[in-house]
């Protein structure tokens, strides 16, 4: 007994004061579109089609990057011959739709040389982050105070995401101090925290769990798999893909797996305490129609710190 007590006293407080202060060496890739020539090298090495190019017309090319699919393998950073892809250090990415996790740049192809040069970012389809946030707020309308009961549902994950969700409750992150608790039954839950590509064998269980949760039943999809099916793909005989293929999703937390900090951030977004963020260079880059004057060359897109502070 005495040993236990002295151990506890000697250890002191281990909880991180600000869980959002530590940055990973690598969060998500950030494309400096101005240096990019849409050469397809990164597309070839990407294991999940997070990077894709398209040729809508003979003289047009697009390159898109979706964090929903990105498993943070860093292959593209090394593959880019122009060194246009940087290892971004931002990790607190959480959005309200899959589209908000995507950015697409348009390129004009010179017919003589075949070389593509960047013209501007395409407008993102669907509602903006602010619109979606307002909609979610309207839906939960004061029903979630500063306390949140979370039921975690593994709908097919590899268990990597579970390890990081468990870590959010450890003494270092201690998510209980934010008023967030994990509960044993969906009937007690405000939020379902769902991981994994939804497997065929978990589809019905996930639906039932969703139906068992009381309104407003906010759903947070965690991980590349939860956001898009990730490395397991979407629509195979065994994997249906992202959680939104089965139940409506309110918050997307990408990453493979997302760090505990990112999961915590996602839950705070669901509570309306943090603002949703689509990641480096996504929201900050105002959409420009193709043909408008290109942005000044060699200006890398600036990653922006959480809560709007420029780095």
């Amino acid at each position: 007994m005495f040993r236990i007590l002295s151990k506890s006293l000697k250890t002191g407080v281990v909880t991180e004061k600000d869980p959002f202060s530590s940055r990973p060496p690598f969060g998500f890739p950030v494309i400096d579109f101005n240096s990019c020539t849409a050469c397809d090298e990164c597309v070839a090495v990407c294991p999940t089609a997070a990077l894709q190019t398209d040729r809508p017309a003979a003289d047009r090319k697009t390159l898109s990057l979706s964090y929903a699919l990105c498993i943070q393998c860093r292959e593209c950073v090394e593959a880019c011959p122009e060194r246009a892809i940087h290892p971004g250090r931002e990790f607190e990415v959480a959005t309200h739709s899959r589209e908000q996790l995507m950015q697409r740049g348009s390129f004009v192809v010179d017919p003589a040389t075949g070389r593509a040069s960047f013209r501007g970012m395409d407008a993102r389809p669907g509602p903006s982050l602010e619109e979606s946030a307002a909609r979610l707020k309207e839906r939960i309308k004061g029903r979630l105070g500063r306390s949140l009961h979370v039921r975690q549902v593994d709908a097919g994950s590899c268990n990597g995401c579970e390890l990081e969700i468990i870590a959010t409750a450890n003494p270092v992150f201690d998510l209980e101090r934010f008023g967030i608790h994990f509960v044993a039954s969906p009937r007690h839950a405000d939020v379902l925290l769902v991981t994994g590509p939804v497997t065929r064998n978990m589809e019905i269980a996930l639906r039932r769990t969703y139906e068992a949760a009381p309104e407003p039943r906010v759903v947070v999809a965690v991980g590349a798999c939860g956001c898009s099916g990730g490395i397991f793909g979407e629509g195979t005989y065994a994997s249906l893909g992202g959680v939104d293929r089965v139940v409506p999703v309110d918050v997307y937390v990408p990453g493979c797996p997302p760090r505990p900090h990112a999961i915590l951030n996602g839950l705070l977004v669901a509570m309306g305490i943090h603002q949703a963020r689509s990641g480096p260079g996504g929201a900050e880059l105002a959409p420009q129609p193709v043909g408008a004057s290109p942005p000044s060359p060699h200006r890398p897109l600036m990653p922006v710190l959480a809560r709007g502070t420029p780095e």
Partner: peptide, 23 residues
Amino acid sequence: LFYVHKGIEKRFEKLPWRHGLFL
């Protein structure tokens, strides 16, 4: 068991062998 069967062995056959490492 087998609730989280994701068809991984089949998926290996579809992915390029270098990407198999991530799977």
